[in-house]
Design a protein around this nucleic acid. Structure first.
Lengths: 206, 206
DNA sequence: GTCTATACGAAGATAGAC
DNA sequence: GTCTATCTTCGTATAGAC
């Protein structure tokens, strides 16, 4: 395995387990058994290494997402959501492939307050998110735009938190977490019900 | 204002805006116009400063949450969720009080991969979360335990992401975000629908 | 009791030798 | 391509002023 690939693999795992800011380049290069300066040579900087970690995996996932979305004719809310979630979830079935760690990293990065760090992931999903948001909105034509926006936020949050912690041990309050395929079904059930919920009391703006 | 309070205020804001790891004690003490060593004197360490930031605000919020929960007799799903969310949301109505920044910090810390950082917040809500999870489960007796667990994760994720980003400008995909009170109503509608959704296809474990 | 000045080791980044 | 040396900034610790 090349130095570059060794760094990518170890960085992905350590970023996911301890967070980007809390992981030092010395941790990565020591565990990958390469020289400290190799990171700067191959990737330029720590933040560019993070970008490379995201770019490597999002390519095939996003391609499959678009394929699934384009294959739908007159899609409903569930089909759109499933087309977005399934391509990532199905890769969890390959143990040892690193996809579980990657998903964990995606989830935590999605909620990172640091704009520069979050941008490394957002630049990978910006185009695809726009396509899916647009198509999803079309399945809910009667929903007020501000309610739709709020609910998309809620779905994104539910997804991100699930990605980040669905396999985490330190969850004393919520036990008995099911298998990846079952989590996907639970997430789709939940998100469809949330997106299509009746609109309750309207609060006047201002 | 005392040195201790100045440090707490500035730390809360900078941790919320840039993340805990990306904020240096020198950033904090420079903006608070106090000496660097004052942090170590008053709080002991950077992580203990974070704990103090959480402890200051969670006290009154959690007390009100328990009051509202105890006041309910034979509560339904919506009432339990509202008793948890409302005490924090209502404080957003006081502009300049720092509660919006605190909420942002709570949301991002909830999704932090670093166990030590997340523990600073979890220790503040552990007892209360157990009470609410237990009461919430009682309102959904027919829901399979693993589905309930998944859905609680989803609600927590929706909440955390909303806290962290509901006032953020860098959200090009989702516009027209409503006012705090409307976000609370939207969140309650969404979470109630998600928690009470019919259980779809059951996936065999393993 | 409070606060300040200052020093130490470790971190990320980078220039230049090989 | 790879590695050493070095720069700046970080969290932390300590001695002492008020």
């Amino acid at each position: 395995m090349s130095t570059k690939e060794k760094i990518l693999d170890v960085a992905e795992r350590l970023f996911a387990d301890h967070g980007f800011a809390s992981t030092s380049l010395r941790d990565i290069t020591a565990e990958a058994d390469v020289n400290l300066a190799a990171v700067n040579y191959h990737f330029g900087s720590k933040i560019d290494l993070l970008k490379a970690v995201f770019a490597r995996r999002f390519g095939p996932v996003n391609a499959e997402r678009l394929e699934r979305l384009d294959a739908l004719e007159d899609p409903d809310t569930e089909q759109v959501l499933r087309a977005f979630f399934a391509p990532l979830f199905k890769r969890l079935r390959e143990p040892g492939s690193g996809w579980a760690k990657f998903m964990q990293l995606v989830g935590s990065t999605h909620s990172d307050t640091n704009d520069e760090i979050r941008a490394c992931m957002l630049e990978q999903i910006r185009v695809i998110a726009a396509r899916f948001t647009e198509t999803l909105a079309a399945t809910l034509p009667e929903l007020p735009p501000d309610v739709f926006s709020s609910r998309v936020h809620f779905v994104v949050g539910a997804m991100a938190h699930t990605f980040a912690f669905c396999r985490h041990k330190d969850m004393p309050l919520v036990h008995q977490l099911p298998e990846p395929d079952a989590i996907l079904e639970n997430l789709v059930d939940f998100a469809v019900a949330g997106m299509t919920a009746p609109v309750g009391n309207v609060v006047a703006p201002g």
